[in-house]
Amino acid sequence: MRALALFAAEAEPQVHLTSQTRIVAAVIAIFFMLLILDLIRRDRLQERYSVIWFVAGLGMLAGAAFPGLLELVADAMGVRNTNVALFSIVLLLLLGLALNFSVIMSRQAAQITRLAQERAIERAGRQANGGTPNGDGSGSEQSLEPEKEGL
């Protein structure tokens, strides 16, 4: 009985992606990458932060074009349903992206703090040297240019 049940489970067909799913995924991936290109073109997104999104878009396209790839991954994960594998991969990807942003955010927070400290020290230094400190301490002077690095 037990062996028979196992055999039945083995014989149960894998759940594949339908052609419709594949077409929808491909269209979304293409639109997604076009959107990223447009954001870069209009200076709304810096190149160095766009690479990871492009990789995500290409991965999506590859998955739609070659469903065998996804099934290979699903097999490796021990997941019978390819859709579940797809969701898991996307979830992991998003987790990685969110962590990446936290790292970037921490770095920028540290940079902002140092910038503020340098400015405060400079003004105190001017006061120490007998000059009058610029402004009244309300910190409403000129804005700072965002740092721009090479492409």
Partner: peptide, 18 residues
Amino acid sequence: ALVASLPFNQGLGAALQT
């Protein structure tokens, strides 16, 4: 006293570091 003004509130740690 000399005054080092941080342009926005940064918390005690950042102030001490200044």
